[in-house]
C-alpha cells in the first residue's frame, strides 16, 4: 500500500518511489507476456472466424444438402456443382494409402528401436529419422512425380502419370518418422520392471514387445497414429504435384484425383476475385478439412483417455 502512494508523500525516501516504479514495471511486463500468450488463442479464433464467415456466404448460395450429396465438383464451370464428397474421396484414398504404409512401418521401426536395437544404433537412427521428418513436402512431391511414379509404372504399366497411389506412398514415407519417433518415445516410457517380469516368465523379446510393451504404451501409439492421420489429411504439396488436380469421385488409388488441399492450391494459383463464389469455395473446403482433422483429434483424445495406463 505504502509503495503505491510513496511518490505523493513528501520526504519519503527515493527508494520507496523506486519500489513503486518497480512494481508497476513488473505488472506491465506480466501483461505484455500474457498478451503474447493470448496470440495463440487469437489465431484459433481468427481461423474459426475466417472459415465460418466465408463459408456462411458460400452456404447462402449453395445448400448444405447439395454440398454433402452432389457427386460432381465443378465450381468454376457455368454449370456449377459443389459436391464436396468428390474432394473428400481423394483425401481419404490418398490418406488411406499413406497410412497403410506408414502405420505398420512406423510401428515396426519403433518396436525395433525401443526393444531390439542396441543403444548405439538408436543414438544414430533417431536423429536421422528426425532429419527425414524435416524434409520439405515440396521435395517429396518432386520425388513422387519424377522418381516414384516412373518406378511404379515399371511394375504397373497401366498407372497414369498422376495417381493417388504414388502420392500416397510417398506421403506414407513422409509420415513414418513421426509415427516411429513418437511411438518409440511411448514404448521407452514403459517401466523396465514390466519387461523383466515378462522375461522372468520365459517370454521371448518379441512376445514381450507385442504382449506387454505395446499394450502398455497403447495410448502413446494411438496419439502417434492420430498425428499421422492429421498429417496425411492436411498434406498438400505432394498431392498437388503428383496426384493431378482434376476432381474425380473415385475409391481407386490408381486414378488421379484432386483432394481438399490440392483444390485449395489450384484455386489459389489462379486469379479469383475476392468475394466471388469460387473464392468462397476454398474456405468451405478448408472448413471441411478442419472439421475432419478435428474429428480425428477428438477421437484420438478419447482413445487416449480410455486406454491410458499409468505406472
Amino acid at each position: 500500500m505504502s509503495a503505491n502512494n510513496a511518490s505523493d508523500l513528501p520526504g519519503v525516501s527515493d527508494r520507496l518511489a523506486y519500489n513503486a516504479m518497480r512494481n508497476w514495471k513488473e505488472r506491465l511486463i506480466e501483461t505484455v507476456l500474457l498478451a503474447a500468450a493470448a496470440i495463440s488463442v487469437l489465431t484459433t479464433l481468427g481461423i474459426v472466424y475466417v472459415l465460418v464467415s466465408e463459408s456462411f456466404h458460400f452456404f447462402q448460395n449453395v445448400s448444405i444438402i447439395d454440398f454433402l450429396t452432389d457427386t460432381q465438383w465443378t465450381p468454376l464451370f457455368d454449370d456449377a456443382h459443389f459436391g464436396i464428397m468428390v474432394l473428400i474421396s481423394g483425401t481419404l484414398v490418398s490418406s488411406g494409402v499413406a497410412l497403410l504404409l506408414a502405420i505398420p512401418m512406423g510401428t515396426i521401426i519403433a518396436i525395433y528401436l525401443s526393444e531390439f536395437a542396441n543403444p548405439k544404433v538408436r543414438e544414430v537412427a533417431k536423429p536421422i529419422l528426425e532429419l527425414l521428418g524435416g524434409i520439405p513436402t515440396i521435395v517429396f512431391g518432386y520425388f513422387a512425380l519424377l522418381v516414384v511414379t516412373p518406378i511404379l509404372q515399371f511394375f504397373l504399366p497401366s498407372l497414369p502419370g498422376f495417381s493417388l497411389l504414388s502420392a500416397g506412398l510417398v506421403m506414407g514415407i513422409m509420415i513414418v518418422p513421426y509415427i516411429a519417433s513418437l511411438s518409440e518415445d511411448a514404448m521407452r516410457a514403459v517401466p523396465m520392471s514390466m519387461r523383466e517380469g515378462a522375461f522372468a516368465m520365459g517370454s521371448t523379446k518379441l512376445y514381450t514387445a507385442v504382449h506387454v510393451v505395446v499394450p502398455a504404451a497403447i495410448s502413446g501409439l494411438a496419439a502417434s497414429y492420430i498425428l499421422g492421420i492429421s498429417r496425411a489429411v492436411g498434406e498438400t504439396m505432394i498431392l498437388a504435384v503428383a496426384a493431378g488436380m482434376q476432381p474425380n469421385l473415385t475409391w481407386n488409388p490408381m486414378e488421379p484425383a484432386a483432394t481438399i488441399t490440392s483444390y485449395i492450391v489450384q484455386v489459389a494459383l489462379g486469379d479469383l476475385p475476392h468475394g466471388s463464389i469460387g473464392y468462397q469455395t476454398i474456405f468451405a473446403a478448408g472448413l471441411t478439412l478442419l472439421l475432419i482433422t478435428l474429428v480425428f483429434n477428438i477421437l484420438g483424445q478419447w482413445l487416449r483417455a480410455k486406454y491410458r495406463e499409468a505406472y
Binding site: T43, G46, I47, L51, V233, G234, A268, F283, L289, T293
Partner: peptide
C-alpha cells in the same frame, strides 16, 4: 489446450487464415 491443438492444424488452413485476415 490451444497451443497443443494449433500444432495439429494443417498448414494450408493457416494460409486461408492469412488470406482472409
Amino acid at each position: 489446450i490451444n497451443v497443443t491443438n494449433l500444432a495439429a492444424v494443417p498448414s494450408i488452413v493457416y494460409g486461408l487464415l492469412a488470406l482472409g485476415i
